[in-house]
Simulated assay, not measured.
Amino acid sequence: MKFRAIRVFEEGDGYVKRIVERSTEDLPEGKLLIRVEYSSLNYKDALSCMGNRGVTRSYPHTPGIDAGGVVVTSESDKFRAGDKVVVTGYDLGMNTDGGFGEYIRVPEEWAVKADTIDIRDAMIYGTAGYTAGQLVYEVLMEDLPPEAGEILVSGATGGVGSHAVKILVRLGYDVVAVVNSEAERKMALNMGAVGTINREESVDTTGKALLSQRWASVIDTVGGPFLSTAVRQVKFGGVVATCGNVAGSRIDDLTVYPFILRAVKLKGVASAYSSRRRRSIIWEKLAKEWRSPEFDKNICEVNLEGMMRAVDDMIGDKLLGRVVLKHK
């Protein structure tokens, strides 16, 4: 079968992306051939489009680390033709052709039946929403009540951060969002945040081992100096759940004191290879009790041509909100 896809090519000293026609015969091996109905844009997709070898080793390549659709053919006894499925994580869109194409072929272990969640909703969440769900879950596992105080969220207007804000607001928590512009501030407040701080205010430069206790807990999507500062500002017994390193991979100025004097917990989240049991728990919560009335806010639905432009906006740091790709 012929289908359309965004394909990234290495040309000269750079990388270019084009919409091309492909054949399902060109897809990699796997027990499930899936007709993709929806995908979404994540930072890893932008990195893949830029030729980042830490994400994608060889080109040409089709990005899209999220995909939701219908099984066309199955060589697995766990799935049948016509089953609606969601595929996130593993190697999809990184070194295996992903959801920016109208068809994918994947191992059966990568797919989850979309029994409790609508496919479009799953792609609005996508890897970003699923990761946000894991971050919130790590905080809630410590039995943190809303009255414990404010929760700080970094990268609050990005894919992961915006979902985290919406979930926490839905559950009755007071959220303070880290923002970098007036547009981001307005967006965070529209999602239900009770307040905002700018990026400069969120980073300490004194190097002190402990700072004033300010936040009940923190959800961090950026890492670097922000993460170091946040750990030193969390109240006694609080949690810092982290998943990103866009602001840096080092945690300078951090000592053991927040952990041994304030019992602060630092929890890392890696969504790509989380267990099937964890996936089931998170997806069910996202579909039901965590689904916010603000769920559809700041969602931009595009076709393949629109996704080409959205990738450029993400690379240029001009993108606000969540971009969902709808295939014809």
Rank of each mutant, 00 (worst) to 15 (best):
E29T: 07
G98P: 06
G306L: 10
D115S: 13
A270S: 03
K328S: 12
V175P: 00
T24H: 11
K328Y: 09
N245H: 09
L41P: 15
D77E: 13
I34G: 12
K113S: 15
V85P: 01
A5P: 06
H61Q: 11
T229E: 12
Y15D: 11
G158F: 02
F295D: 09
D97P: 10
D83Y: 04
D143L: 13
G99V: 02
V85I: 15
E108W: 06
D13H: 12
E108L: 07
A67Q: 05
L189N: 01
L140N: 10
E147P: 02
F79P: 15
I124G: 09
D174L: 00
L325P: 06
P258I: 00
E37V: 10
W290V: 01
G69V: 00
Y43R: 12
V16M: 09
A216P: 01
G54W: 08
K297C: 02
T88L: 15
L144R: 10
V246T: 15
V311P: 04
D313T: 04
L261C: 09
R278E: 12
V194Y: 00
M50Y: 07
A209V: 02
V160P: 00
A272I: 07
A81R: 13
A46M: 14
Y59K: 03
S74I: 07
D296L: 08
A111W: 01
Y15M: 10
E109H: 03
E21G: 06
R250Y: 13
D26T: 03
F295H: 09
R53Q: 10
R276G: 07
G268E: 02
E10K: 07
V178S: 00
G268C: 07
K113C: 14
V16S: 14
K44L: 12
V175F: 04
V176C: 06
F226C: 01
N245M: 13
I281D: 03
E201T: 08
G82D: 14
L325F: 09
S217T: 08
L211Y: 14
S274Y: 04
T116R: 14
I219L: 15
K318R: 15
D312V: 06
V8W: 04
R22C: 07
R4L: 08
K78E: 14
E201G: 05
I251K: 03
E25L: 02
P60K: 10
R53H: 13
A114F: 11
S154L: 06
T242F: 00
D143T: 04
E201I: 00
E29P: 03
K297Q: 09
Y38M: 11
R276Q: 07
G244N: 05
G129T: 05
T196D: 04
P107H: 12
E305F: 01
V178A: 01
R53L: 13
P293T: 05
R278D: 06
M123I: 04
V311E: 11
R322I: 07
Y125Q: 05
Y130S: 10
N198W: 15
G172D: 08
D83V: 14
G237H: 12
G64K: 08
I65A: 09
K2Y: 09
D174K: 14
Y130V: 13
E108F: 04
R4M: 07
D26H: 03
T131R: 08
G158S: 10
Y15K: 13
G237T: 12
G268V: 07
V112S: 11
K2T: 07
V179A: 00
R57T: 08
T157V: 10
D91R: 14
W283K: 11
V55R: 06
R232P: 12
D220T: 03
G237R: 07
A132Q: 04
R199D: 08
